[in-house]
């Protein structure tokens, strides 16, 4: 097991290196500079700025410098926001994004599994149809429209929740819901089809033949087995939540990390682009590893490592 995780970590470092390299060179290949404005800067200032941020060195040297700074986990100063380091941006933005993401993941899982389970247990009854209509809506309505819709109905029409900002728990509900809607719908459909498949399985008949009631069967036999595809969806779910947060954070004015991802690119804020990319990549790679470990813990048939490793 430990050996396996070690191997995976090695692969992660390799993947990360590839991501850093590709992002670095793609970013620098893109036209436009972080200092281009309507008024052209005096060449002396332009040169000064470039020297200050090390942009005057050869591209390869800059790349090497960057690799070193990634290893040191110091992403340097933002080119756009004076006096702020990328590490500051990350450490200020990430806790917010993390809280939002966790709430959304929780909602997506809880509501998605509930909806899917109800639909499967009431297969071809009105509960099933209702749940699946909700799921289709959730999948087909883009999250920014969902966000505006929720904002309009719950915040403006009914005034039960705040429109935007990130202040209290009440402020987190709408963005988390909007962010969760698509993955929730996806999980609901996944759970439903998986449950239906599991319900048709012989071991459910076995469980019934033991005299268990339907609750016992659902809880002990159906859900856990039906959760397998859902657990394997956790990786994509986390990346969906990460990427989805860009739009949602913008709409709700949430000071998270997501918006830096987009604005840093339009600003050509090289250090922020790289810092945020590296950070998100590490986050994603680690979550995928955690999901795989969790998966092997839930499904005894999956072995993380070869027998020797165990």
């Amino acid at each position: 097991m430990l050996k396996y995780i070690g191997k995976r970590l090695l692969y992660m470092v390799l993947t990360l290196w590839v991501i850093v390299t590709v992002t670095f060179f793609l970013m620098r290949a893109a036209p436009g500079s972080p200092f281009s404005g309507e008024k052209e800067l005096p060449p002396a200032i332009q040169a000064n700025l470039e020297a200050y941020y090390g942009l005057d060195k050869s591209l390869f040297m800059q790349y090497v410098d960057y690799l070193i700074s990634v290893v040191k986990w110091d992403f340097g100063p933002s080119l756009k926001y004076k006096g702020q380091s990328v590490n500051d941006l990350i450490s200020e933005g990430f806790p917010v994004s993390f809280a939002l993401g966790m709430e959304a993941i929780f909602l997506a899982l809880a509501l998605g599994v509930l909806l899917g389970a109800v639909a499967a247990l009431r297969h071809n009854k009105w509960q099933d149809y209702t749940a699946m209509i909700i799921a289709v809506l959730g999948i087909s309505v883009p999250s920014f429209i969902m966000a505006s819709g929720l904002q309009y109905v719950l915040a403006i029409k009914w005034s039960v929740l705040p429109v935007a900002r990130w202040e209290s728990f009440a402020h987190t509900i709408l963005p988390a819901l909007a962010l969760a809607s698509t993955p929730m719908a996806f999980i609901a459909r996944l759970t439903r089809s998986s449950m239906l498949e599991v319900i048709g399985n012989d071991y459910i008949k076995t469980a019934k033949s033991k005299g268990l009631n339907s609750t016992e069967i659902t809880v002990r036999h159906t859900i856990r087995n039906a959760m397998m595809p859902v657990v394997s969806y956790m990786g994509p779910l986390i990346s969906a939540i990460l990427t989805g947060s860009f739009v949602i954070e913008k709409i709700f004015g949430i000071p998270g990390l997501g918006m830096h991802f987009v604005t840093s690119i339009t600003n050509r804020d090289y250090s922020v682009i790289m810092g945020v990319t590296v950070f998100f990549s590490v986050l994603l790679l680690v979550s995928i590893l955690l999901v795989d470990i969790a998966y092997s813990l839930i499904d005894p048939r999956i072995k993380l490592a070869d027998k020797k490793g165990e």
Partner: peptide, 26 residues
């Protein structure tokens, strides 16, 4: 509900395919 007291207790059943009739995660 009454049948639940009969199943497993008074009458038990073995199915054809042992590969699928046991819960794989229990």
């Amino acid at each position: 509900k009454q049948m639940e007291k009969v199943r497993g207790k008074d009458i038990a059943m073995i199915f054809q395919d042992p590969m699928t009739s046991l819960n794989p995660t229990m």
